[in-house]
């Protein structure tokens, strides 16, 4: 029986006076009070229901957003993984390529002459050397450069050392009076190769034809990077089957061919029986 009154009160449609009267009646009429409280509670519950609907709506939106975010994250992760895999593959290809083209470089040999250590460097020209004062520590048991690509020219630069022997050293130690042959040897020993070649012209016919003298002359040309005169001399010497210096002739002629990238001819010479037990030729063959 109070429904209409309660409805008008809750819908805010009462005048100030009506409202005042209604609120006064609420204080004294327990039936009205119960009815009013029930209605108010029911409407409050209705409001809660509406809120829950709105909440469910937002939770659905949230679910969609999070699902999209998760997909985006997965996609990003996928791209990152793909990137890493590609980098890994490229790295492995590079590693494979690098290892197949890398060869062990032969140990560098250090020649000691008086107070000077001469060391050949891979990227220098054949005649170029680095002079270091004696006493400095130079690793002689390890290659100068490992795991690098080497052209025939580089291999040549690494292994070429001018010919020397014990006799040469004895001839250099002679007195002040020197004959042409001793002067020739002296210039050569002191790396004045151009002078040595020039003095060769003063030697007598026998000496000029001497196999050892010719080997030194060829080495002088080699040291001056004059490959063709050196080859010409060495090929002549190589044709002599009775040569006493066959091993050295094969070695230096092989180096000449190597320098000119005539690999087959060089290989043949380095594989000559005279050089079979020579560690230098083994190292060069490995490096080639």
């Amino acid at each position: 029986m109070y429904e209409e009154k309660i409805e008008r009160y809750l819908a805010n449609e009462m005048s100030t006076e009506e409202r005042k009267n209604f609120e006064g009646q609420l204080q004294h009429d327990s039936v009205l009070k119960d009815e009013f409280e029930n209605t108010q509670k029911a409407l409050e519950d209705l409001r809660w229901h509406q809120r829950m609907d709105l909440k469910a709506r937002l939770q659905n939106i949230e679910k969609t957003i999070q699902s999209n975010e998760s997909q985006n994250t997965k996609l990003k992760f996928g791209w990152i993984v793909l990137g890493i895999v590609i980098l890994l593959i490229l790295f492995l290809i590079w590693l494979r390529f690098n290892s197949s083209s890398t060869q062990e470089i032969p140990d560098l040999k250090i020649k000691t002459n008086h107070d000077t250590i001469i060391r050949h460097v891979p990227d220098a020209m054949p005649q170029e050397t680095i002079k270091v004062k004696s006493g400095e520590i130079i690793p002689d048991s390890k290659p100068e450069i490992k795991k690098a690509k080497h052209t025939p020219e580089e291999i040549y630069a690494m292994v070429y050392e001018p010919y020397t022997d014990a006799e040469l050293e004895n001839q250099v130690r002679g007195g002040d009076e020197k004959n042409d042959y001793e002067v020739f040897c002296n210039f050569y020993y002191n790396e004045r190769y151009a002078k040595a070649i020039s003095v060769y012209g003063n030697l007598n016919a026998d000496l000029k034809a001497n196999e050892r003298v010719l080997l030194i002359k060829a080495n002088s040309h080699l040291a001056l990077n004059q490959l063709f005169p050196a080859i010409s001399i060495l090929e002549k010497l190589h044709r002599d089957t009775n040569s006493k210096n066959k091993k050295e002739i094969c070695w230096y002629l092989g180096l000449c061919y190597l320098r000119l990238n005539r690999i087959d001819e060089a290989t043949k010479l380095f594989s000559d029986p005279s050089l079979r037990s020579d560690p230098r030729s083994k190292k060069v063959l490995r490096a080639m």
Binding site: E7, A11, N12, L43, D45, L46, H49, Q50
Partner: peptide, 29 residues
């Protein structure tokens, strides 16, 4: 409490809910 409330109010037709809402919350005549 909310679950119970939700299932109870859901039994009320949409139109009734809408009318109640307009009348008592949106204060429509």
């Amino acid at each position: 409490n909310l679950k119970q409330l939700h299932s109870a109010v859901n039994q009320l037709p949409d139109q009734s809910r809408r009318i109640l809402y307009m009348r008592f919350y949106e204060q429509k005549t």
